[in-house]
Amino acid sequence: MSKAERKAEVVDLKDRAAARQERLPVLKTYKLFIDGKFPRSESERYYALTSANGESIANVQLGSRKDFRNAVVAARKAFPGWAGRTAYNRGQILYRMAEMLEGRRAQFIEELETLGASRSEAETETAMAVDRLIYYAGWADKFQQVFSSVNPVASSHFNFSMLEPTGVAALLAPEDSGLLGLISVVAPAVAGGNSVVVLASHSKPLAAITFSEVLHTSDLPAGVINILTGTRKELLKHFASHMDVNALVYCGSDAEEIRTVQLEAAENLKRVVIEENSDWQSEERQSPYTILATQEVKTTWHPIGL
């Protein structure tokens, strides 16, 4: 940023402040969320977020492929510990996330409104986001019982199949549902014991970033959820090709993007989940089958004898 630009920005902010109220409001710096910390992009780039009527809202970090790389390192580091937590504990932490979100509803509603939602839309989305977290908090210690099995093999062996998290999941959150959509893909992956790196909606990133502050105060271990902002165009290929990512969840319906994701994912045989349905408020968007998408089935054999 040049000196002149910086000056212009300050002026702009002052104008906005003056226009709103007498007191100069304190503006929030929107940053990334990696490994439990809030860094700026290593690239020191940003993009300006403007409201529907062209008003400048905030500068948002333009996450780079290196930010993504750092986030995957954090997620990988966090994975064994998170997967090793008891399911009960994971459920409690998801519930805690819901509590924290509930407590800051006003802020989320305001941020959603800022980015074009009506008051009632913002209220609905925030309420549903809280409820969705609670929904998956409840599943954390139940889906295993629904989907695992004891297998009646025809030999003297005790044989069972259970679910285990796939590992590190990279998520391309839906573009048009900044909070509910993001939580709808993050919560099932994390409830199931995965660690995630999620790219927030490019046009609606505010709630995602504020959500990272919720995470920060929810007893969630650092690195389990990492949130990036930036452009999908720039990061999509890296999300799909990173060799230390085990699963990729793509939300959207761009045929070319889907093709790219599937092509690149073949490099290390990532599990690819394509979420084309964009109605995040529908009843079908919450389901234990969503958790299954980032789970592996492990079958264990042991002899039965004296």
């Binding site: 003297s156 062996h157 002899p303 039965i304 004898g305 004296l306």
Partner: peptide, 9 residues
Amino acid sequence: VPIDEVGID
């Protein structure tokens, strides 16, 4: 010395 019965079978 442990012996596994199924393995023996």
